[in-house]
Design a protein around this nucleic acid. Structure first.
Lengths: 106, 106
DNA sequence: ATTTTATATAAACATATGGTTATATACTAA
DNA sequence: TTAGTATATAACCATATGTTTATATAAAAT
């Protein structure tokens, strides 16, 4: 893997919000508004972080009617994937969202 | 591992020069002036990159008379270490330096 | 002691980055 | 067709980052 491409990957991971997003998507695909709800950040901010992750090919998107669901891109290099799997377990955040009726959607 | 600490690690790796440094140190310890020579960059620039890598605990230093030798920190988290081992092989750069008589030192 | 060599630090500057507010687009529902 | 919902993009701003030049420090050599 080339250094330029690697640098882009690590740049994409070099932000706490984006690591949080990756840590959440590790459990299941989520749409933008769910991430907004969980991370308590504005929608444009989340969208721009997702764009960076997408450009670095760490996540992919899937449109379903009004929503766009993001998930970890399966094509990721194995050692990058290992990094994502080493992120903290945030499944409780998703559980909270479901419990509060905020899931699927919005 | 905490997200803040992880973010610092990835920030440290989110730069092409620093990835080059890590890729070189993967093979053997090097002093600042050797890195300057190999990477064709100014000494203060290299020094500041090394400081970031040191702050993120990716590298450690060892003083030997006038020189300060940098190397990969052995205490690194395993999956971070795997990242460094996945970096391109730059041993030829070190060989070139040795061939040109630029090694140990300066 | 003075000079030289190796490295670190500081100051200054240009560019990159992340957040906010406002607006545009895409789809849904009425 | 119009209104509403979900998301993206643009413009703006404050802060962070990387590079350069200049200077400081530390050890070695003379």
């Amino acid at each position: 893997m080339e250094l330029d491409q690697l640098t882009e990957c690590y740049k994409a991971m070099a932000d706490k919000t984006r690591l949080n997003i990756l840590a959440l998507l590790r459990h299941e695909e989520l749409c933008v508004c769910e991430l907004v709800e969980i991370l308590k950040m504005t929608q444009p901010s989340i969208s721009q972080h997702l764009r960076k992750l997408k450009q670095a090919r760490l996540v992919k998107e899937r449109r379903s009617s009004q929503w766009i669901f993001y998930s970890i891109d399966g094509e990721i290099y194995p050692f990058i994937k290992a990094n994502i799997e080493a992120l903290p377990d945030l499944s409780h955040k998703i559980e909270e969202l479901k419990a509060s009726g905020g899931k699927v959607c919005c």
